[in-house]
Design a protein around this nucleic acid. Structure first.
Ligand SMILES: NC(=O)c1ccc[n+]([C@@H]2O[C@H](COP(=O)([O-])OP(=O)(O)OC[C@H]3O[C@@H](n4cnc5c(N)ncnc54)[C@H](O)[C@@H]3O)[C@@H](O)[C@H]2O)c1
Ligand SMILES: NC(=O)c1ccc[n+]([C@@H]2O[C@H](COP(=O)([O-])OP(=O)(O)OC[C@H]3O[C@@H](n4cnc5c(N)ncnc54)[C@H](O)[C@@H]3O)[C@@H](O)[C@H]2O)c1
Lengths: 223, 223
DNA sequence: CTCGTTTTGTTCTCCTGTTCACAAACTCCT
DNA sequence: AGGAGTTTGTGAACAGGAGAACAAAACGAG
């Protein structure tokens, strides 16, 4: 309401935002291999997309390439990281330390990609006796305190589906504004809170649909 | 294979395919609650989508509703399950029984949603001594035999990123034509093989981007 | 049987995202 | 310096999906 975000608030299309992390990862791989410079064609191949799409995506961030040359890997990597917001770590809490929660807590890719697990929470007192990946599992009731203490704005839900909505409500009440949900089902949250869901069954069912089509494709049109 | 579905070669838009599993789950929930009939409005709410979109999606499958009344929950549920191809179970193999592989193997949602884990494979001999979720972990070299034996067409990759492409190649060679990949990075597969990826870091980075925007929205214009 | 009510199935419009194609900008070689 | 060869950045056409709106169909009341 105070201002009309002068120039930096370019709005990047959602589809582009979803691909920036892919480009970032490809750039990190290239940098690790010692590549100093790359063309849009090379980067696009590494990221598994069309080069025109890649260039258009990058053009939303600014003109960070050099015509006739390509992109400086380190420079572009930094620019994308800055645009995404992962130049420093985001604190994250994980709720529901069961099968999946354990795997997530042990996942090293968290730290290396701009996130830091500051707390593991579970409603089950038995779980709270555990230490997972060097972090104490604490009571779900500690949520509010932890959120304030660490300035957490991102929460991960790995509880059974039946508890997910309640956990989400508590997270929102505590001040969390972004949720990654692994439990199946639809979460309802207030305006201004972002939810992304990861649903294994849905992914498999999409594969099954296409698989079924492949199977019937030959038998289907007998003329 | 004689089930020829008179007019079934309709091609359903990809966006619709991705939502059908959501509708299916919502219908199962409604059925469990004892609901016999529902309107597009109710079902749309339960699935978290717009009712016009829901109706349009369902119209690709056929006319399974009754005007003035709504949809028969059980009937529509069956029709969607049939369209997706989950009226009977698909055999699935999981490769890479580490942190994540354990969680996946123990995931009960598999069986209840049209999939059956027929084998757990790992390259590490130490892992092969284990029994996870009542299933022996076997050598990755058994892949070909298992695929043939059970008619597997869907494979899940939960190995480290560095091994993922190799595992994918072996899967394709063995006859698998749909892959769900949890390892970060881009997989290259031949034409006709479907790959879907689930990437935790990407999801979190997308949340981080929006989170950053929320944070700077108010403070941005000091120019 | 007819009318009013409800709700689907579909059409039409709008918007987002993808891809093509090319001018502009840069490098290198002579 | 100038020209040939590259490669970016972007305008414009195209494709696909979202949502509003409404006619067609079913049902129930009188
Ligand atoms: N395991 C998988 O591979 C997998 C895959 C896809 C989706 N999921 C989904 O992820 C979720 C977790 O799966 P899981 O296999 O880890 O289940 P799980 O039962 O092993 O673990 C759930 C954990 O959540 C805790 N919990 C329950 N209610 C809670 C609450 N109100 N507040 C805080 N903690 C609570 C439980 O104490 C338990 O430790 C489920 O919704 C499941 O459908 C799991
Ligand atoms: N743990 C998580 O929560 C999580 C989250 C997101 C993504 N991931 C990704 O999922 C993958 C697995 O993660 P994890 O934490 O389970 O790792 P992990 O190291 O615990 O397990 C990997 C397993 O794969 C096996 N393996 C290695 N090479 C193999 C090969 N060529 N063939 C067959 N098996 C092989 C190893 O023996 C090991 O058991 C990684 O790529 C990781 O980036 C994990």
């Amino acid at each position: 309401m105070s201002a009309r975000t002068p120039e930096s608030a370019r709005d990047i299309p959602e589809a582009t935002v979803a691909r920036l992390p892919v480009y970032l990862r490809a750039l990190i791989t290239l940098a690790d291999e010692g590549t100093a410079t790359c063309s849009s064609e090379e980067l696009a191949t590494a990221a598994g997309v069309n080069s025109a799409k890649l260039r258009k995506d990058l053009s939303y961030l600014g003109s960070y390439g050099t015509r006739g040359v390509g992109y400086d890997v380190e420079y572009l990597r930094y620019q994308i990281a800055r645009e995404i917001g992962v130049t420093q770590d985001w604190p994250v809490v994980i709720v529901g330390i069961g099968n999946l929660g354990h795997a997530l807590a042990n996942y090293s890719g968290f730290r290396s990609r701009g996130f830091r697990v500051v707390a593991l929470l579970d409603a089950d007192p038995v779980r709270q006796a555990e230490v997972v990946a060097g972090i104490d599992v604490r009571s779900f009731d500690d949520l509010d305190r932890i959120v304030v203490e660490h300035g957490v704005s991102i929460g991960v839900i790995a509880t059974p589906a039946v508890a997910a909505q309640d956990v989400a409500d508590r997270m929102v009440a505590a001040g969390i504004t972004s949720i990654l949900n692994f439990a199946p089902g639809v979460l309802t949250v207030p305006e201004g809170v972002d939810v992304r869901k990861v649903d294994l069954s849905i992914e498999l069912q999409i594969l099954a649909y296409h698989e079924q089509r492949k199977a019937t494709a030959g038998t289907e049109d007998a003329s």
